[in-house]
Design a protein around this nucleic acid. Structure first.
Lengths: 157, 157
DNA sequence: GTTTCTGCAAAGGTTTTGCAACAAA
DNA sequence: TTTGTTGCAAAACCTTTGCAGAAAC
């Protein structure tokens, strides 16, 4: 579990650290590695668990402080999956305009990108007298597979 | 500040109370009245303040319990305005498909509805193998008025 | 050496809950 | 009466913060 960051990502991290006059520490490296190791969304606590598997000494305080920095830098985004907790999404670096579909049957989260959606948002926003900056779309849906077959490849139980 | 609920709304409230075998209490009436008195979005605490202006004896516990019921019944929806707190939106009863645009300059929240958006979401969702249930779109934008005139009719300061 | 960062533990803020008294049906 | 509801206070949760020691530069 010591897969290094991609060069592009590492370079964005380095740039951010340099621009803000921050220091590169073992704890930050571990947390960033844990965050970008996979494309899964995660809560603060899940990320803490993952980071501790790499290095058991990291603290929650540092985790939260690092999360703030990553969100501020744009490397990570907070997303609202309609659950109780805040989730973080590491995939905006590669796909800056994606959105989320959440299956109410199997809880699966599907990321999608659609140029028509972006254009339409732009159009709506300008007509209202604003200039679009960012947007997020969350679709909650039910699973065809679950409805038709009574089972779902993604459903856990 | 004792404006009664609209008949349509009152009837939906009554239906919900009857269907769940709940009781109609003074505290619930007051909270519901405070929630639907205006079309403003509010936090739990803001609603508590409003309710106390009508009847100062209501407690936070009852407020939270009533909020849960209203959300469960569909009369109220939790919305994510990108701020720290959860906001509640009382306008879904009249406009079940509306979305939100938030101005980054003046913090104004504009509600909009767009049939093309709904159709596109439907299309995207089905193509991914799901059936759409609900969706929410949040657009963050900057204010033309503020950018062009250096002032904004909605900006407080 | 300076300055920033970390971990701990305590504090903050919001929401939930157990329980005895109370009120609706 | 019976059953659901309320208010209180405590608990639960997640996140932030003050501070002294440790680590980066």
């Amino acid at each position: 579990m010591t897969a290094p960051l991609s060069p592009a990502l590492q370079s964005r991290v380095d740039d951010f650290i340099a621009a803000k006059g921050l220091r590169r520490t073992r704890q930050r490296d571990v947390i960033i590695q844990a965050a970008f190791n996979t494309t899964d969304h995660f809560t603060a606590d899940e990320l803490w668990e993952r980071a501790r598997r790499i290095d058991p000494t990291s603290s929650r305080a540092t985790l939260y402080r690092t999360l703030s920095l990553l969100v501020e830098s744009g490397l990570l985004k907070e997303i609202d999956l309609g659950r109780d907790q805040t989730y973080y999404d590491p995939n905006f670096v590669d796909h800056p305009h994606h959105n989320h579909l959440i299956c109410l049957d199997c809880q699966k989260v599907v990321e999608f990108e659609d140029i028509h959606m972006s254009l339409l948002e732009d159009c709506i926003t300008r007509r209202l007298g604003f200039r679009p900056e960012t947007s997020s779309v969350r679709i909650e849906a039910s699973c065809d597979e679950w409805r038709l077959k009574g089972s779902c490849s993604r459903r856990r139980a």
